[in-house]
Nucleic acid binder design. Structure first.
Length: 741
DNA sequence: GACCTGCTGCGGGATG
């Protein structure tokens, strides 16, 4: 490390400089160079955004540790991570450096012993590595000790900031940091570490609500290397009725795709993303069977959230070791965080959930200098003919894949959605603060959580009062004679269980056990019968017994069988993606990365788009239903559906548009009502959703009063402004109406 | 027609 090359190096403590020499690092990365002077003084909030493996952790900790060891009294830095695995990784990396500095490092999460935790509590100095849930538990259960525990706190470091923005857990994290600062009576510098973000302003506003403009921003300049892309199309033949008498017929394209993967991926490390756990099982099964059939060692390993820790660890170990090549078939469990080394290529089967997610997945490939990142895309479309749907005719899956790749190449990806009010998490934070403080007045709670520049500042005073009253009716809260709020009968029970600490809900699941050995878990919503065959961990099993008390399914090995269904929610597609899809269908651009079949899909989509005159027509008459083709994102389509429902129609968002049941009405009636909706003022969310049921999505939604539940849902899921903007921009506004059938 | 994350305090009994 030369003195002239780096000015930031000299800002670091001498012992840290010696450590860097000893490690043999030739230079500081640009993100570290820029972040050190901003962080070392410990007087401001900073976001460091850089691609994976750019040394973000060091960018935060080299200056933060310098500050800690040079302070008059021993200080404390708190590092907050979304994953336990990441805490364990970071502990390994930090502990060696910190040992030389005589700074203790304390991992703290659910798997850490109580004795280690109490040793930290007696010392209260060094670096604490913790999850939001463990921090919640600490505030909840050790309320009176919080002031002294964090007395010497100098930094709050948030890792994987992008994974928190716009989520229930992110809202919880904001509230936890805020509550700690309130107890110790001063602001603590917040350091956010993130993958590159589209909108740094949103991230800054998230890190320091109300004062985002004052957050210092460091963005790594290191540009992405070369990217090689191949997208292959596969056509699934139509199933002729009568051929499937002995049960479900298996589709044939997965075996073809697996064959291509087998040839292309063997001999190197890769990740395959088929978008669902069920498909992970399907492809792992196909690929391991191919290894068996060719009598070669297996190179394909499954990884998803329903698999046991042991099976996942086996896959991670296969990827990490260097002796033999390994490919993981996975869900987004391998998208974030844990270090699995560089992979040669990434395969994406079907369009990815979002461009942002595709980008994150590709970040795992081509990380060594001079090596390109490689993306293999696979598109499956049903053969046309007979009763093909509009989605089939327009080849929407393939068009979406091409649209998302073209946006990726332009450097665009979805900004995080930060409009959600997350009132569910407000309920949790009210209950938690009462536990911490041994009771609270309504004014105290409102001032803490809902005042300007707090995490729930969108909640008005009257709404907060309504919420607290409702929590009283539900026996979550009671008021004592002096007006202080305490936990009610139900609240007491819920707070005094460890499930309370997580802000997000989770499905109840069955354990799957074979011969006494746990294989993993399966969501409880799934219907199962004894004797049925399921695919799990890449193998076929027969269900022997279902123990509802113990929530356990006992299985034995079996041959053949249909894969089990996993429960799931709905994806959210952004308007920009839908508009690029339309642009692709209207234009004649030929993306070079499409193979012959994928090119044919695009050509067929374009031909059908023209035949139906969809450049002009936005109303498609489909007999009993009308399809309004908006080419907007899901949030706007859902808002349009709500506007029509308010006026008596049955309407649901449907891919690139909104499907409306005609009922007794005519197509012209539907269009009239649509224009009518565009003339009105934007209705408040609770009015818009007045007739809609089943809005509960988050953990505490079940205790929200109806009006606030609608507000919470609407703030997160509807884009009313965009919906009204679309209606108002329709051609002629009552004049020309495009109809196609 | 999706996916992921996380979790305490205490008491009882065994062991050094």
């Amino acid at each position: 490390m030369s003195a002239t090359a780096s000015s930031s190096f000299h800002l670091l403590d001498e012992r840290i400089q010696r450590f860097i020499w000893a490690e043999g690092w030739d230079s500081l990365r640009d993100a570290q160079e820029a972040a050190i002077p901003l962080i070392v003084k410990g007087d401001r909030d900073v976001i460091v955004a850089a691609a994976t493996a750019a040394g973000k952790t060091e960018a935060a900790f080299l200056p933060a540790l310098t500050h800690l060891v040079q302070a008059d009294a021993p200080g404390l830095a708190v590092y907050i991570s979304p994953l336990k695995a990441l805490i364990n990784d970071q502990f390994g990396r930090l502990d060696r450096l910190c040992e030389q500095l005589e700074v203790p490092v304390w991992p703290w999460h659910g798997d850490i012993s109580a004795s280690s935790k109490s040793r930290f509590l007696s010392q209260r100095r060094g670096v604490l590595l913790i999850t939001p849930e463990s921090l919640e538990a600490m505030l909840c259960n050790r309320g009176t000790a919080i002031g002294s525990t964090f007395e010497r706190l100098s930094y709050l470091v948030v890792d994987e900031l992008h994974a928190f923005i716009g989520t229930e857990r992110g809202k919880q994290l904001q509230s936890l940091m805020h509550r700690i600062e309130r107890v110790i009576g001063r602001r603590v510098p917040r350091i956010g570490l993130s993958a590159t973000l589209g909108d740094m302003g949103l991230a800054a506003a998230f890190l320091r609500p109300g004062h985002g403009a004052a957050v210092a921003l460091v963005e790594s300049k290191s540009s992405g290397g070369e990217l090689r892309i191949l997208v292959k199309g596969y056509e699934e033949p139509r199933v002729v009725r009568g051929e499937q008498e002995d049960g479900e017929s298996e589709p044939i394209t997965p075996a073809q795709i697996a064959g291509h993967l087998f040839k292309g991926l063997r001999g190197s490390n890769n990740l395959v993303f088929p978008n669902s756990r069920r498909e992970v099982e399907r492809y792992t099964h196909l690929l391991t069977r191919m290894c068996d059939a060719q009598q070669v060692p297996n190179e394909f390993w499954p990884h998803h959230g329903s698999l046991s820790k042991e099976i996942r660890a086996e896959t991670e170990a296969a990827l990490k070791q260097k002796e033999r090549p390994a490919t993981a078939i996975c869900t987004n469990t391998l998208e974030l965080g844990i270090d699995i080394g560089a992979v040669k290529s990434v395969a994406q089967i079907g369009p990815p959930p979002t461009v942002a997610s595709l980008r994150q997945r590709l970040g795992r490939s081509g990380r060594r200098k001079g090596e390109p990142a490689v993306l293999r895309g696979y598109c499956v479309e049903d053969a046309l003919g007979g009763q093909a749907s509009i989605a089939d005719e327009l080849r929407l899956g393939s068009v979406q894949m091409a649209a998302m790749i073209s946006l990726l190449l332009e450097g665009w990806f979805e900004p995080p959605s930060v409009k959600g009010a997350h009132l569910s998490t407000l309920v949790q934070q009210v209950l938690s603060f009462i536990a911490q403080n041994g009771g609270a007045t309504i004014g105290q709670l409102h001032g803490l959580l809902c005042a300007p520049a707090t995490p729930f500042s969108v909640v008005a005073k009257d709404e907060f009062v309504e919420l607290i009253r409702h929590l009283g009716q539900k026996e979550l809260l009671v008021q004592d004679s002096s007006g202080v709020l305490l936990h009610g009968r139900v609240g007491e029970k819920l707070v005094n269980h460890y499930r309370f600490y997580a802000a997000f809900a989770s499905d109840e699941e069955f354990r799957i056990v074979a011969g006494g050995k746990s294989l993993g878990t399966l969501p409880v919503s799934q219907v199962l019968t004894i004797g049925q065959r399921i695919l799990f961990a890449g193998r076929t099993w027969k269900v022997e017994d279902i123990d509802e008390e113990q929530k356990t399914i006992h299985v034995s090995r079996a041959v053949g069988g249909a894969p089990p269904l996993f429960s799931g929610g709905a994806g959210r597609t952004h308007t920009r993606v839908r508009q690029r899809m339309r642009q692709l269908l209207e234009g004649d651009e030929q993306p070079a990365y499409l193979d012959e079949v994928a090119r044919r899909f695009l050509a067929e989509g374009r031909a059908n788009y023209r035949t139906r005159s969809l450049s002009d027509a936005y109303v498609l008459d489909q007999g009993r239903e009308v399809l309004l083709l908006t080419w907007l994102g899901d949030a706007a389509n859902e808002a349009i559906a709500c506007l029509l429902r308010r006026r008596g129609f049955v309407a649901v968002p449907a891919g690139p548009g909104v499907e409306v049941l005609k009922g007794q009405a005519t197509l012209e009636d539907v269009v009239d009502v649509l224009f009518d909706a565009g003339l009105d003022e934007a209705p408040p969310l609770d009015v818009l959703l007045a007739d809609t049921r089943n809005l509960q999505r988050e953990k505490w939604d079940w205790v929200l009063p109806d009006r606030l539940l609608r507000k919470a849902y609407g703030s997160q899921h509807l884009d009313l402004e965009e919906a009204l903007g679309w209606i108002r921009s329709l051609p002629g506004n009552g004049g020309f109406v495009g109809v196609s059938s």
